[in-house]
Amino acid sequence: MLCLGIESSCDETGLALVLDGKLIAEKLASQVDVHAVFGGVVPEIASREHLRVLPVLFRELLKEQNLTVDDIDVVSVARGPGLQGCLLMGISFAKGLVLSSRAKLIGVNHLWAHLTAAGLEQELQFPSLGLLVSGGHTHIYLIESPTKFNLLGRTLDDAAGEAFDKTAKSLNLPYPGGKLVDDLGRQGVVDKKLFPVPYVNNDNLDFSFSGLKTAVATYVNNHSGLRLEAMGVPEDGEEDSGLAAERKNMLASFNYTVGRTLEVKVKRALERNRGVKSLIVAGGVAANSVVRSVMSDVAAGFSIPLVLPSMHLCTDNGAMIAYAGYLMAEAGCRHDLDLEAIARGRVVPSDWICEG
């Protein structure tokens, strides 16, 4: 079975081909440079970029693999959550391909695809506990199969990735700032009491990072020298060494606080779901070194394997959509051409048609 995956939920345009569960080719066009000028993603610009590059990437993908549209058995596309206009670009393109071929259409839950992406590199075991940490979502799932995800906890306001982005922005670090926060933080010394560990003194599995964002903003306002005068990353020796060290220490403490928050909730979830066979951690923030280290310790403490996608599979990509579509097709799932885009803030329905 040859499955094409299309990802266009935000500012990455990704296409990939999965043949019988193995990734054989992929293309990715990033819009980071386009949106960096604005300090964040501009939805209208992102949508136009998807419209511009989708046909180009598709032609290149088929040409390099010596394939035609008729060779594709399944067209899977991210149908949400995401930016409405961006999603519509990918879904419209997918529907056009289905109309011009014999392929089946499958709408993929973008969040679930992140968590199953590691299946491209290693065998997934079910049931598993899944932690999704990204720019827009921080969710905990009990994953019973590739098509059955039970949401145990979610972010009530700001996600972990949002806290990373806003922390970087408060210091005038370039967009996207999550990796810089991680890189600079690794050079600093952690003060475990600098920031409060948010929303853990309760009995639920939900998250809230708005308080941490406020604490960071307050700290930077009270230590205005930490904010760079011009956006960028100073070279060694370009600024006062004490100031640079203080900034790195602050970021190290911020990384610690996020990691500690995730640790508390994931441990709580694992204690309540003792039968899981693994801990899957995915999403853009899963590339953070502190998060990866903390989750490794958590999994070891419960004597279960930690499943982490490779770095390039943590961010948005077509491969995860193609693989998730392949798994759904294997389970006999498909969608009709009335497939809808589901914008962020709405629940993606399990409205597929099951065959056999």
Results as ranks from 00 to 15, higher is better:
residue 37 V to D: 07
residue 39 G to S: 07
residue 52 R to P: 08
residue 32 V to G: 00
residue 52 R to N: 10
residue 58 F to Q: 11
residue 45 I to G: 03
residue 39 G to T: 00
residue 47 S to W: 08
residue 25 A to S: 15
residue 47 S to C: 14
residue 49 E to G: 04
residue 29 A to Q: 03
residue 46 A to M: 08
residue 36 A to I: 03
residue 22 K to L: 14
residue 47 S to D: 06
residue 50 H to A: 11
residue 23 L to H: 12
residue 39 G to R: 00
residue 47 S to E: 11
residue 51 L to F: 12
residue 43 P to A: 10
residue 60 E to M: 05
residue 45 I to D: 01
residue 57 L to Q: 12
residue 46 A to E: 06
residue 55 P to K: 07
residue 27 K to C: 09
residue 50 H to V: 01
residue 31 Q to N: 03
residue 36 A to W: 00
residue 48 R to D: 03
residue 24 I to N: 05
residue 58 F to K: 05
residue 32 V to Q: 02
residue 22 K to E: 15
residue 58 F to S: 01
residue 59 R to C: 12
residue 27 K to D: 00
residue 56 V to L: 13
residue 40 G to S: 02
residue 49 E to H: 12
residue 43 P to I: 13
residue 42 V to Q: 09
residue 32 V to K: 02
residue 59 R to W: 05
residue 42 V to W: 02
residue 51 L to Y: 12
residue 58 F to L: 11
residue 42 V to T: 10
residue 29 A to S: 04
residue 45 I to Q: 10
residue 50 H to N: 06
residue 32 V to S: 11
residue 33 D to R: 11
residue 28 L to G: 02
residue 38 F to Y: 15
residue 35 H to M: 07
residue 41 V to F: 05
residue 56 V to Y: 12
residue 59 R to G: 13
residue 41 V to Q: 06
residue 51 L to P: 04
residue 29 A to L: 06
residue 42 V to H: 00
residue 28 L to E: 05
residue 41 V to M: 06
residue 53 V to S: 10
residue 51 L to H: 14
residue 35 H to K: 13
residue 56 V to N: 09
residue 38 F to L: 00
residue 56 V to E: 14
residue 53 V to F: 04
residue 29 A to C: 13
residue 34 V to L: 12
residue 60 E to T: 04
residue 38 F to H: 15
residue 55 P to I: 01
residue 52 R to Y: 08
residue 37 V to K: 15
residue 39 G to D: 03
residue 29 A to W: 10
residue 52 R to S: 14
residue 26 E to W: 11
residue 50 H to M: 07
residue 60 E to A: 08
residue 60 E to S: 13
residue 51 L to T: 04
residue 30 S to L: 12
residue 33 D to V: 01
residue 42 V to P: 06
residue 39 G to H: 07
residue 27 K to F: 10
residue 59 R to L: 09
residue 25 A to C: 00
residue 48 R to E: 03
residue 21 G to W: 08
residue 38 F to G: 05
residue 34 V to M: 01
residue 26 E to C: 01
residue 56 V to W: 12
residue 47 S to N: 08
residue 59 R to A: 13
